[in-house]
Design a protein around this nucleic acid. Structure first.
Lengths: 210, 210
DNA sequence: GTCTATAGGTTGATAGAC
DNA sequence: GTCTATCAACCTATAGAC
C-alpha cells in the first residue's frame, strides 16, 4: 500500500477541523501513566499537561474511566497494526522479528499494566482483546509461523514444536521487558538478554552434534 | 529443618499478645488488591473488611502508602522462603520445579502489579528487591542450576546454555500466568500450556536424531 | 491497640458563558 | 469545543477517649 498515511482513502472531512485537543489529552494521560502510575493520574493534571481545561477532558471522555479506557484502546489499536504476526511475514531473521516484538511489548505493557489498577478497566480491556482477537497468541502464531517456514525449508530440526518454541521465546522477551519496566530500567542486566537467548536457541534448533 | 513453623527458635513473646488486627488488615488489603485493583482500594474498605476501625489501619501503617508497602513487602518476604532457587535443590523433575514456580508467580504477580499503580510503591519495591537480591534472576539461577546438574550427569545435551534455557522456560511460565491474571482466567487456553512446552523442551534438550 | 468523631484536602464531575 | 467557576462526595489522616 503506497502513500501509507496520506492516501486519499478517507473522504474529505466536513465541519469544524479538529483542534487536536483530544489527542493532546490522550498523550498527556499516557505520559502520566508512565511517570506516576494509574492511581496517581488525576484528570486535573492531565488537563494541565495537555494544555486544556479540565472541562475539556470530560467533554471528550465523559469520565475518568472513559479517558483511561480510551488511552488503553487507542494504544492497543495502534499497536495492532504493527503486531508481531503481521511483521512475521516480512522479518527475515529471528533477530529482526524479536527486536520488533521487544519494541512492541515496551508500549503494550504500559497500558496492560495501567488496566490492572482498576477491575473495571481490566474487564474492559479483556473484552476489547477478545473482540479483536488480539493478544499474545498472535505473537506466538507469528513466531511459530516463521519457525515453521524455516523448518519446512529444512533449516531447522524437524522434530521441534514451533508453538512451544515460540511461547518460550516470546515469554523470555515478555519477562525481560516486564522486569525492565516494572522493577527498574537496568534490571534486565541480571537476566540473559535477547541476543544471548537467541544464540542459544538457534543452536538448539539446528541438529545437535551426536 | 524439622517442626517447620512451630519450632522453638524464637524467644517467648513479651508484653501484650497480638490481637491479629494487623494481620487481618494486611489480608483484607491483599484481597481488595485482587478484586478491585490498587486504585480502587480505600483505607475505609480495608478497615471494614478487616473488621477494624479505620483508625487502626493508620495506627499500624501510618498512611495508605505504608499499608500498601507493607502488603507488598510482606508478601514478597513470605515468597522468598519458597523461592524457586531454594526449591531447585529438592525438585526432582522439571515438572515439579515449574509447577512450583507457577504457583509462586500466581502470588508474586499480585503485588508486582499492585506496585505499578504508583511510582512511589514501584520505587520502594525495586529497592526492596535489590536489597534482598530477590527477583526473577533467582528463578533463572534455580532452573539453570537444575539443568546444569542434569547436564553434568550426561542426561542433557552438553552444548546448550542452561541460563538461556532457564530464561525461556521461566519466561513462558511468566507470560502464561500474567495473561491469566491480567486478562482473564481462561485466557491461557490460547497459549501453549506448561506441559506442552515442557514436553517440547525436553525433546530439544536431549540429543536430536541425526 | 482499638475505637469514634471529625477535620482537611483533593478530586471527579457539572453548569453555563463564549 | 473550550473555558471558568463551583459543587458535592469521598477519602486520607488526626485527635482524644477507652
Amino acid at each position: 500500500m503506497p502513500f501509507s498515511k496520506h492516501s486519499a482513502k478517507q473522504p474529505a472531512r466536513r465541519g469544524r477541523p479538529r483542534s487536536g485537543g483530544r489527542e493532546a489529552i490522550l498523550a498527556a494521560a499516557f505520559e502520566l501513566l508512565v511517570e506516576r502510575g494509574a492511581s496517581r493520574l488525576t484528570t486535573r493534571e492531565v488537563a494541565t499537561r495537555a494544555g486544556v481545561s479540565e472541562g475539556s477532558v470530560f467533554y471528550h471522555f465523559t469520565d475518568r474511566t472513559g479517558l483511561l479506557t480510551a488511552v488503553i484502546e487507542d494504544s492497543l489499536t495502534a499497536l495492532m497494526e504493527v503486531s508481531p504476526s503481521s511483521q512475521a511475514q516480512v522479518a527475515e531473521t529471528l533477530d529482526a522479528l524479536t527486536s520488533g516484538i521487544e519494541r512492541f511489548l515496551d508500549k503494550a505493557l504500559i497500558v496492560l499494566i495501567a488496566a490492572q489498577s482498576d477491575a473495571e478497566l481490566r474487564a474492559g480491556m479483556a473484552a476489547f482483546l477478545l473482540e479483536n482477537d488480539f493478544g499474545p497468541h498472535r505473537g506466538v502464531e507469528g513466531i511459530a509461523g516463521y519457525l515453521r517456514a524455516q523448518q519446512q525449508a529444512g533449516l531447522l530440526r524437524a522434530d521441534i514444536d514451533p508453538e512451544s518454541v515460540a511461547m518460550m521465546l516470546l515469554g523470555s522477551l515478555f519477562l525481560q521487558v516486564s522486569m525492565r519496566q516494572m522493577v527498574s530500567e537496568d534490571y534486565g542486566g541480571n537476566l540473559p538478554g535477547r541476543s544471548q537467548v537467541l544464540a542459544s536457541l538457534m543452536a538448539m534448533l539446528t541438529p545437535a552434534p551426536q
